[in-house]
Structure formats: structure tokens, C-alpha cells
């Protein structure tokens, strides 16, 4: 058992100073048919530890939402799942992360191949400064997924259709992707991610820079995509987590506190920190 560290107290959460982190996340962190499984995961940035002993399973074709106050490490954990953290200097991940039973941090697992299986959508829409077509076709071309132009055309069309963007852009595929609106750009990024048919999609606050209408479109899209993909989404909006996810994981300063059915987390949280967060006592 560890005591709640200083930073929380500094935020004025004096009422919480006697709260202790659970050794093991409360609720149901494990799943039988898991796509991704994390055991004793610790993440360090140099000397600073960002994630403490996280154990969680992500089930096949589920949408799991990760919530928690800023700086709680949810994005860090997400980026560890497809080894995006490899590019961050001084970042060390320990513990066991397995995708379909394969450890993703062994030397046998190529990070490039892993990222083809686990796609990612980022906080800020980041289309390449290329045409809409090339944005979507980039991944398939990279991995040699299409041998002929017609095949590539088909991949582009299906990806854009699935991302709900086809009807809006089908007449201007040769125009720059950067010329689209923010919401369209983000859907383009989702199309780009699904064009390489990943098994899992990680979304790091995908709607944080979008207006409510664009957000609604992305949320609809997530619901549709969950039929074929396993999705992990980090979000700051509790309403969004409640709307799109099957399960919700609550993180607090690097510790996984509670994982439960989304409805349960938001109606009857088991842990008092979760309750404090969702009732808005801090965050």
C-alpha cells in the first residue's frame, strides 16, 4: 500500500489524504478472451516513474475507455501498447505486454510490424501534407498490401467509407488532406489507420480539438468500428467514455485504480478515488 503522494494534496484534495491506492485494480480488470494483456507494467521516463504495476486485459472487439486526471499516465500507457514510446528518449517499459499471447517487447517482435497490427489515432489531427488519396494509401503502399492500382483504389475507398468520409471527399481525392476541416481531418486519420487493417486501434483523445458535431461523428464511427476492431480510447470527457465504451479504466497518478463495465463505473464506482473523480471533486 502506498500513500497518496504530494501532488494530489497540492491540488487541494485535502479530504483525500488518507486514501490509499489498491494493490490491484478493483473491479474486473481481466477478461477471458483478451486481445491485449498487460501484466506488471511499469513505465519510466528517465528517473521518473509514470506507470506503476498496471495489470489489465483488453478484450477482443471491445471499446475500453481510459479516464483519469491530467498527468495520470493514461496516454503513456496507450503509447506503450504499440511501442510509440520507443521514440521517446529515456523511456523504459518493463513488465509483460502481450498481443494475442505474443510478447510485444521481445526482440522477435518488430515495432514496425507491431504498429501495422496496432494502429493509432492522435490527439491532434495530423494528416500528411499530401493528397487525401495518398494519405490513406500511404500505409498500404508501405506494407505492400496492394499489388495493383485497382486494389489500392479499393482499399482507399473502403477505408474512407468506413471512416464516414467517402461521400464528402470522393470528388476531391487529389486535393491536400490538410485542406479539410478539423473533424474531416481526424476522420481521414482514422481512415489512414484502418487502411492497413490493424487488429487494434489506439485513440489518444481523438476529439479533444474538435467541435461537438465532429465529435459526435467520430463517436458514431467508434461504435461502428468496434464491430471489427478492438479499440482503446483515452479521453478527458467522461460523457464520451460513457457514450462509446464497453468498459472503463480509471487511472490515478500512474496507478490503475478501477476497471469495470462503463455503466457501473459511472453509476456505482467501487473505489472512492473513482467516485471522487467522476463526481468532479478533482480532475
Amino acid at each position: 500500500m502506498t500513500n497518496v503522494p504530494e501532488p494530489l494534496l497540492k491540488r487541494g484534495v485535502t479530504a483525500m489524504d488518507n486514501v490509499q491506492y489498491p494493490d490491484q485494480a478493483v473491479g474486473e480488470p481481466f477478461a477471458n478472451d483478451h486481445k491485449m494483456s498487460l501484466r506488471n507494467v511499469n513505465v519510466f521516463y528517465g528517473d521518473k516513474q509514470a506507470i506503476f504495476d498496471v495489470n489489465i486485459d483488453i478484450a477482443r472487439n471491445e471499446v475500453i475507455a481510459m479516464i483519469g486526471p491530467s498527468g495520470c499516465g493514461k496516454s503513456t500507457l496507450l503509447r506503450s501498447i504499440n511501442r510509440m514510446n520507443d521514440t521517446v528518449e529515456g523511456c523504459v517499459v518493463s513488465g509483460e505486454l502481450t498481443l494475442d499471447g505474443e510478447d510485444i517487447y521481445t526482440t522477435k517482435m518488430d515495432p514496425v510490424a507491431l504498429r501495422a497490427r496496432v494502429g493509432m489515432v492522435f490527439q491532434k489531427p495530423n494528416p500528411f501534407p499530401k493528397t487525401i488519396y495518398d494519405n490513406v494509401a500511404y500505409g498500404p503502399r508501405l506494407h505492400g498490401l496492394a499489388s495493383r492500382r485497382a486494389e489500392l483504389d479499393e482499399i482507399v475507398e473502403t477505408s474512407l467509407t468506413r471512416a464516414g468520409l467517402w461521400n464528402e471527399v470522393k470528388d476531391r481525392l487529389d486535393q491536400p488532406g490538410t485542406g479539410l476541416s478539423g473533424g474531416q481531418q481526424q476522420r481521414l486519420c482514422i481512415a489512414r489507420a484502418i487502411a492497413i487493417s490493424p487488429e487494434m486501434i489506439l485513440m489518444d483523445e481523438p476529439c479533444s480539438s474538435l467541435d461537438p458535431i465532429a465529435t459526435a461523428k467520430i463517436e458514431e464511427l467508434i461504435a461502428e468500428l468496434s464491430q471489427n476492431y478492438t479499440i482503446a480510447i483515452v479521453t478527458h470527457s467522461m460523457q464520451q467514455a460513457a457514450r462509446v465504451s464497453h468498459r472503463t479504466a480509471y487511472f490515478h497518478l500512474g496507478h490503475l485504480i478501477e476497471v469495470n463495465e462503463t455503466e457501473k463505473v459511472f453509476t456505482a464506482p467501487e473505489h472512492e478515488l473513482t467516485e471522487a473523480y467522476i463526481t468532479g471533486r478533482f480532475g
Binding site: 504499440n82 510509440m84 494502429g119 495530423n126 494528416p127 508501405l142 489512414r192 489507420a193 492497413i196
Partner: peptide, 8 residues
């Protein structure tokens, strides 16, 4: 990040 994310 975008390029790394699609497996470049």
C-alpha cells in the same frame, strides 16, 4: 508520429 503510427 503519424508516419510511425502507420508503421513507417
Amino acid at each position: 508520429e503519424a508516419a510511425i503510427g502507420v508503421g513507417a
